[in-house]
Nucleic acid binder design. Sequence first.
DNA 1: CGGCTACTTGATAAATCTCAATTGTTGTGG
DNA 2: CCACAACAATTGAGATTTATCAAGTAGCCG
Lengths: 241, 241
Amino acid sequence: MDIPRKDVHNSDTPLLCQACESRHRGVCGALTSDQLLRLSKHSTRRSVEPGTELVGESLQAKSYSNIISGVVKLSKMMADGRQQIVGLQFAPDFLGRPFRAENGVSAEAATDVKVCSFPRNVIERMIGEMPELEHKLLEQTLTELDEARDWMLTLGRKTAAEKVASFLLLISTHAFPDNEAESVAFDLPMSRVDIADFLGLTMETVSRQLTKLRKDNVIHIVNNRHVSVPDLTRLSDRAGY
Amino acid sequence: MDIPRKDVHNSDTPLLCQACESRHRGVCGALTSDQLLRLSKHSTRRSVEPGTELVGESLQAKSYSNIISGVVKLSKMMADGRQQIVGLQFAPDFLGRPFRAENGVSAEAATDVKVCSFPRNVIERMIGEMPELEHKLLEQTLTELDEARDWMLTLGRKTAAEKVASFLLLISTHAFPDNEAESVAFDLPMSRVDIADFLGLTMETVSRQLTKLRKDNVIHIVNNRHVSVPDLTRLSDRAGY
DNA sequence: CGGCTACTTGATAAATCTCAATTGTTGTGG
DNA sequence: CCACAACAATTGAGATTTATCAAGTAGCCG
């Protein structure tokens, strides 16, 4: 995106952060240059491929991350293998559960993902010292709670057709948060199986509903992943709003 | 209820709060006597009947509440009347969404409910001044998010039989948070229709699944509302855990 | 081009919903 | 205390939606 501008007045902002697309968004937006410097001493950036587990059993418990780009899926699994995706996270969301062991939620990269990670103890210390940081976290958590509850309505009360339309609408709005136009186009960040696991359906049902939307010209699909929506209002109607 | 007891050592704790069953739980646990005093100057207690709307269009936007006793259901409704209950709240939960207009969630007393309410602006000012209060809110919000995600798994992936068992288990554990015994008995806080709206089912399906659990001696029901569970492990098995 | 995987499509089965009738519970007035 | 009305819950039969199982097709990568 933006190339970092030289800024003498901010020469103490860490280089890594100057180049970060999320510098002013997400939790880092709450930090001063000094604080960023402290944090960046312990931060590491990495890019991961789709399918990489970011929180689970492996490398998670000791670190928190900011999502810089890409989509992360949060999911839960039952003993017999049934799976439910309980949330999608986009940049600049914060990844990781402060003050608590993860509650059986695992996080996995859905697309190529870039994250900036910090050790758990550094973050927790800073949270204790900086009310503003905790405030940002509360805001994000409240947003996630709203989204979770919206999705509960989708899972519990919508038909398969409405669910699939709701999913497409969700991706439309999150891919371009301030899109005002009536049409959009995007790549689906996940497979039919993942979509089914997010909607509480089977892959086949998802596929059939996509076909129906396609036949009704509500959407166009090329190469299975690329979707264009000529009229968001019509999609929204199909989603039950 | 209780008549406030005189307590010389806490003579500066407001009488109202001394008598409050939730004094040391929930968000008030974060407050000192001084702070409680300030808050209690503006607080009002009331008891409401089942069905009373606590947050919605009416008396909500300007106040927050602590639940002192009873069960509150949070729900969402679609334009055509389909309804989904997206959460249940028990004492000493905090009721109301700080820093934000309610996101289409309405709160209604499921049982007889007692609440202690505060004006919005007083709470928001205190939150700004007291990091500890915000921390408590973050903790509660994280807990609610965990519960919402657990329920998403139930809504999306469990069978009707597992859903009904999950509901009974949820009530069992929340009615007696630190029950260690293997059996419990309680009154259901809501009707079959409400249970169906919580589980994303119809009333008839809920009824049939309760009958099945009853015939299998996993539960006993008297007068439609009173349930006893002789063996929580068996119920838990039925819930898919 | 060939092989692998993801996706689509079709036929059938299973779960859940809908509609309708019946039973049970609670509260009221005599 | 009983009879009755009003409401809540159960039960049954049939319709509908979605899942399951089984091919078949398309896109992707060597």
